[in-house]
Design a binder for these strands. Structure first.
Lengths: 238, 238
DNA sequence: TGAGTGCACTTGTATATACAAGTTAATCAG
DNA sequence: CTGATTAACTTGTATATACAAGTGCACTCA
């Protein structure tokens, strides 16, 4: 039970380099130590080093160039669709305000925005919360989130204002989002959305239904995001 | 100029296996020949075979299970945003028809759907083509593509019907899409789009502006995709 | 018969080595 | 001083080999 299996060397190296990048020890544009250097400093052979680097490349942390080296790219952006790109170029994070419309409430449901729920998820129920994200006094996102009621201590009483769910999951529960599925569509605003976004009837809205996979085997959560892309498009890299 | 560089063995094997999967010779659930078998049949060593398989895993064509083998997953869904998920679950590829509306034409432009063009791209001009993708007799995508006029032999005369640009790039020019940026928004159909999609005025449309990076240093291409998501949502994994 | 053991097969990880190919900077000839 | 060559680096690809670890089936023994 909970046997702490030693990480293979290539994963150790991967985690270490990754941390250096996310911590900012290596900045965008920096060149990582060469593969041979990493070999000697970590006492492994080149294929092992390359395996770690391959992973960093794949995830967008670094870029490699033959004859040159491994160039740090920085934090990969837009795993899925996360960041915003506005007509005004520079938008501080400070201008993004998050308001809770409906506090986390335990409900029973059979389906999460088109994604079928597992039997045990139906059984334990899900926390449901609604939030509105406002940028420069303008509502941009309205989202509904469903989180299955597995053992997440004090979940319903946590403060979700101005903190992303992803961040809470990671810092409070050591759960990371490892991937997911999403479905996108353009719709016209219904009454509720019209009101939240303060737009006219028939206004085009982007809707995003997502199922998030996590590092916790068998734990998923779900969200439905409505986005007013009139002034701010959804931006992402892939 | 245009030296036909021989593909390295691992890429040859990758292409071959990939083709077998996309052609349906290997179906979902099938087990690929074991790594050692592939070694003998292709006269390469295991690391080489594994490199090809790693790539297929990464792209979602196969899944590997230690002690068992390589299990075919089928067509990968949504590298970036590509595939479709309809209300009807099973949609054969056969039902997706691609029609060229405007054949590749060399034009000069300063800007590609919001992405600034490099100086040399402005100088050499771009091929522009327009396509309409039709599924079950219903137009789903309308896209405009801009490809800078670098040396791509016979580009303008190639057949783009029912073949993705990505595929042509890969097989004819050994150019792979390594990533990119995209911007998403919901809009209402303008006159042209209304006509192509045969929808009413004010119909919500999803617009996707993309800049594609390639394995060829400094070579990008651009597309603007209009999507009628009324019956088929855009589906992707991340 | 039935449960358990072991073997043969699979993929996972790692070493050691070799050469090809691209980049950069120093060196040398003019 | 300028320009071409060279040498020393970098990553890319490939071989050959070894053992660990997970899976599944056939065989054995109670």
């Amino acid at each position: 039970m909970a046997v702490k299996k030693a990480l293979p060397p290539y994963k150790v190296l991967y985690e270490q380099l990754r941390k250096h990048i996310t911590d900012g020890n290596y900045k965008r544009g920096d060149i990582l130590p060469s593969e041979n250097e990493l070999c000697t400093t970590h006492q492994v052979t080149r294929p092992t080093v390359r395996k770690a680097l391959d992973r960093l490349v794949h995830e967008g942390y670094i870029r490699k160039k033959q004859g040159k080296g491994s160039i740090v790219q920085g934090q990969p952006q837009g795993v899925g669709i996360l960041s915003l790109s506005g007509t005004t170029s520079a938008i501080g994070k400070d201008n993004l305000e998050t308001r809770i419309i409906v506090k986390p409430t335990l409900i029973k449901c059979d389906d999460a925005f088109g994604f079928p729920l597992l039997d045990f998820e139906k059984e334990v129920g899900c926390y449901r919360l609604e939030r509105l994200r406002i940028m420069n006094k303008q509502p941009i996102f309205y989202d509904i989130t469903l989180v299955p009621n597995i053992n997440l201590p004090r979940f319903s009483s946590r403060n979700f204002e101005n903190r992303s769910l992803f961040e809470i999951m990671r810092t409070s529960y050591q759960i990371e989002i490892s991937g997911g599925e999403q479905k996108l569509m353009a719709i016209t605003a219904d009454d509720k959305v019209q009101q939240y976004f303060n737009v006219a009837a028939g206004h085009p809205i982007l809707r995003l239904d997502r199922k998030m996979e996590t590092s916790e085997e068998g734990f998923f959560f779900y969200s439905q995001v409505y986005c007013n892309t009139e002034n701010y498009g959804l931006y992402g890299t892939f």
